[in-house]
Design a protein around this nucleic acid. Sequence first.
RNA 1: CGGGACGUAGCGCAGUCCGGUAGCGCACCUGAAUGGGGUUCAGGGGGUCGCGGGUUCGAAUCCCGCCGUCCCGACCA
Length: 489
Amino acid sequence: MADDKKLTKRADDFSAWYNETVLRAELADYSPVRGCMVIRPRGYGIWERMQHQLDTVFKETGHENAYFPLLIPESFMRKEAEHVEGFAPELAVVTHGGGKKLDEPLVIRPTSETIIYAMFSKWVQSYRDLPLLINQWANVVRWEMRTRLFLRTLEFLWQEGHTAHATEAEAEEETRKMLNVYRDFMETYMAMPVITGIKTESEKFAGALRTYGCEAMMQDNKALQAGTSHNLGQNFAKAFDVKFQTEAGDVAYAWNTSWGVSTRMIGGLVMTHGDDNGLIVPPLLAPIELVIVPIWRTDEDKVRVMEAAEKIKTSLTGWERRKSGKLRIHLDNREGIKPGAKYYEWELRGVPLRLEFGPRDLDANQCVLVRRDNRVKRTVTLESIGEDVADLLSVIQTDMQVAAYERREANSVRGGISYDDFKTLMEGKGGFVYAGFCGSAKCEQEIKEETKATIRCLPDEEFRSAVAPTTCLKCGGKSVAEALWAKAY
RNA sequence: CGGGACGUAGCGCAGUCCGGUAGCGCACCUGAAUGGGGUUCAGGGGGUCGCGGGUUCGAAUCCCGCCGUCCCGACCA
């Protein structure tokens, strides 16, 4: 931050730009503990809107919220072999309580499968108890080596859905359904298009049968896994004895799923939409959608402009829209700060629409609306201000989504790329590469070592290339699936 | 855990080589003017110089130890 006022430009140092934007837009701050962060009101406000929307859909799809404890007996973590292996390196463990060493150490949850399925085994007796559809909003702790605000912190907030079903097919349907819930949310609300698909064995959740994910492309052309959904099969049911009596009278293990999205999505939002002036929040998730900046020169003007600005705010606040509820408006009536300074400040904070209103506007019964996403100014009459603001916000939402989609496609490569060209691309600007994969973990591992790119997923059908690749990107052998390759966060 | 940089006011830094009254910019407070894209002037408040020990008449500065942060590598929503 050589110049106090200007952000580092994305093109100069994307990583520095991201950190500065998050800090200066007051989304979050560093905590006294390494790797932890404080989510500030402007960041938490976005999270609350994300939570509200997702929670609504979770309930519409039949899930109920519950809360399971933070502390998990260490022995629980050991009951599922892959699970313990996957999470052991990043566990935080409580060894003392009340001044005494504990008989059994307690793990701070890195995720709650173990405690939840232990409880499910008590609650599930009969096929009539199924499906059991539970969600919890919680914090989890994973002791990561390197951390970044929102993207990877020791503690983060998320939701984790956990379900139990009578059949494998039902569990698979649930897994896919919730993946699509995430996808819809990310596209519609975050204006962040994603590629959905299945994870390879090496990227799969520890303990799952199959893992599906949503992958978004950030402005540095790296991939961000924004949500995952797991078909757990009967792995945890067997480990925690989640059994039920079937309609026919047999005893069977339940089929489980789990799925989650976290505050990491806020990082995704920043890196999808931000520009060199700071944050840009899509209207549907913006805690403030419209900021009114009054302008005056003389004391008389100040009085009448402020009075009229208050009126505009009141009349607009009454506007109710289908998806986004009442208009969320802030009137910046601070004195002693020039309008220009306010513009920069609210732009940095990402408020999608600004209304400028001064004496000239008052006399002409008009105001100036300025879009955050493309900075286009428009003078509109106050007669129809409600419609205009609502329309513009909706257009901004759509335009942001389209822009993000077009950027992703412009940086995606399909249809035949040599391994040499692939390496060059990954050393340079990066991007999404759709290419054949022979299915061997060896090829996957070698590519990772040589280029740092990984298979983000084997994309779902609608994202696959028109002509399926026939040979493996690495070994040239027969391709068994089309893979999406990219460097990832 | 390895390599590098750093720790001085809320933030960003200078001062450290060569020991001698702790400074600058921004932010903050007061007042006046200013106000359609980052306002100006005047006045003001704020510091265990990361922590502990040592050398010295005297340490932000030299020596030893520790702690912490950031960046780069091995792990990851």
